[in-house]
Amino acid sequence: MDSLLTVKNLNVSFNTYAGEVKAVRGVSFDLGVKEALAMVGESGCGKTVTSKAVMRLLSRSGGIIKEGSRIEFMGQDILGLSTRELNRIRGSKMSMIFQDSMTSLNPTMTIGNQIMENIFTHEKTTRQKARERAIELLKLVEIPNPETRLKNYPHQLSGGMRQRVMIAIALALNPSLLIADEPTTALDVTIQAQLMDLLRSLKERFSMSVILVTHDLGVVADFADKVQVMYAGTIVERGTVDEIFDSPRHPYTWALLSSIPGRAQESKSKLYSLQGTPPDLLLPLQQCPFAPRCQYCMPICKKAIPKENFLTDTHGVACWLQHPMAPKVTPPAGIGGYDHE
């Protein structure tokens, strides 16, 4: 598959009062044309920072992309671009939508003007044409009565509709890459299902690639082609959706999958729950980041960081259990395809 985006050895830090927070630590991945990649993991594991690095949106929050990191998008070196060149790409070739539509939309501007403004920054066109395009976009994201909706301010729309407007703005110029950071987290299941269906059909229609950031594994299973599980700023497991859900190999992935009650699980029985918290990102990494919480932890895990080991072209696992000399362990019951009724 043709690669649209290549991230190599991405390291991102924040200099804080307490010291250097190493939020992303050596992340590498590829995204093909028309592919949907999901990033999952607990709060604070670096999903948003990774996404923002790809968009080069970190400088405002003080994030520093470290020397040696590489991001290539459509053959261009993103990290070497000037602000002008970046602005040309952002919004037109790659767009991002955020979790909280209320804070990312301008409350004092009608949604029509916000969509049109985005079109004007990238294209020389007439007001009339931009307005027609805005209506077309609102239709595309299935907002009823687009002509009247154009005149609405964000607070006059429901959460689900605001999120649709965000998608319309992001799609205005037919980007090749859409990054959606928790696009449905604040919404009800029914609205979430509508939006994910919409994203799926738009992705097909415009041959877009999508990076979806979410902590809802159910959404991932429904939407993504491939998944990367992040922990403490690193990718601990990656694979196709089938590989991750049917034969997960990393104890952290097992933990995430087991904490969701299964259909076959006896009601009110104990749910698996992961004890402890992710490691402090101020500290350097000298062991497996998951070691302090891992029930399979071996002496080697505390001495050296496990390298990513590829079981197939797509399925990578960074865990010492993959070492030929490690004991054989089976994943906890109830996960990985054991739970089909």
Partner: peptide, 24 residues
């Protein structure tokens, strides 16, 4: 029926048809 059909599911053994509700 519509509400339950919208539950995203990691246990992907059997996929039920999602029921689409019109409007909000």
């Amino acid at each position: 029926q519509a509400l339950f059909s919208a539950i995203p599911d990691v246990h992907r053994g059997k996929k039920e048809q999602r029921i689409h509700l019109q409007g909000e």
